[in-house]
Each structure stands twice: as C-alpha cells, then as structure tokens.
Amino acid sequence: MTESKQIVKLVITGPVNAGKTTMVQNLSDSQVAATDVAATDSVSQLKAMTTVGLDFGILKIDDTLEMHLFGTPGQSRFNFMWKILSKGAIGAIFLVDSTCDESMLEMKKMFLYFSEHVDLPVVVGATKQDLPGAKTPDEIAAFLELGDTMVIPVDARDKESGKMLTLTLLGNALVEAQADEDYDDDYDTEDLF
C-alpha cells in the first residue's frame, strides 16, 4: 500500500512586475505552469507579459511531502483568492518593486487585505534594489506600515537570493509553529547529547 503524500503550500504574491513568476520558477523542481498573457492595461507599460491565473510549481521535499508554490496575479482585485490559497499554506512571501511608487500603493492595498483576512507567517522581499531610485527596506517598511514584518532585499532572478528569503520565512514559521504546538516529550535526542 502506498503512503499518501502530504502537500503544503507556499504563496508568492505582491504587485505586478515584482518577480513572482521568476521566483516560483527558481524554487520549483518541476516545470512551472505559468499563465502569462500579453498585458493590455496599464501593466503593458511595465512589461509585455503578465500573469492572469496562477503560476504553479512543485518542490518535492521527500517521498511523503511536496510543497506546492503558487504565484498569484499582481493586482489587488484578485485578493479574494486568498481564502482558497491560504488553506494548507505554510506562509506567504510578498515581493514588491522597490523602485515603483505604483507598486508600493498596490502592495499597500494587498497587504492591508492580507493582514485583515489571512493569518499566515509572512515576509516581504524588496526587489530591484540595484536600480536607481530604489527605496531602502526600512523606507518600504515605513511606507507600507508593515510593523514587525521583515523586509529583506532580494534579487528575484537570483536563485540563492530567493532561497534566503524563503528560509527567512520558514524560520519565522517554525518559531510560530512551535509556540502553537503542544509539548511532546518524546524527543529523539540520541544524536544530540
């Protein structure tokens, strides 16, 4: 009899043109199902293609666990999707274009909705920090009124950078998770002491 596979989700979200699709691709070990189409609205001034559905990738953790990565569309009008996306999710990564004021304003709307409706560990990745006019992580945190949420510079094109951002989120999630769990005195510590 085969053991059933457990699936957890990681949501990568944020405004248009922040690097979400790229990050999903970098973290997945499967072919990513992207739903990019030619942009028609104001987004066409930023980039030729934009995500209209969900980017989807899979990272196999081990024989019994898979992490499914979801990259959401970058417009706040898709906020309603959170209800479905957050179910079984271990956390959310917001990516925001550090150089774009419109991106910040959209991010503010998205993050406000997230804070009010979703209870998940979260980190914010500030992309395009290498470009002129980029706001610093501290400026972004202040502008977006992020409170305790960590803002970390990230190059979405760089796999290593994406890994570091994800590990930061997972570290936060781990601390939150242990606080929620009952004590288990059945520790396997043979190799520790």
């Binding site: 457990q6 953790i61 081990d62 590990l167 997972l170 288990d184």
Partner: peptide
C-alpha cells in the same frame, strides 16, 4: 532522523533542509 510525527515543526524542518 528527527521525530517521525508529521507535526508542523517537523514539516517545516524538512522543507528548510530541502531548500
């Protein structure tokens, strides 16, 4: 070789190691 229980902390630790 950590705890076999599929608790959330265990799941997160496995994901961390994989990433």
């Amino acid at each position: 070789s950590a705890q076999p229980k599929a608790k959330k902390t265990s799941i997160l630790s496995r994901i961390i190691n994989r990433i």
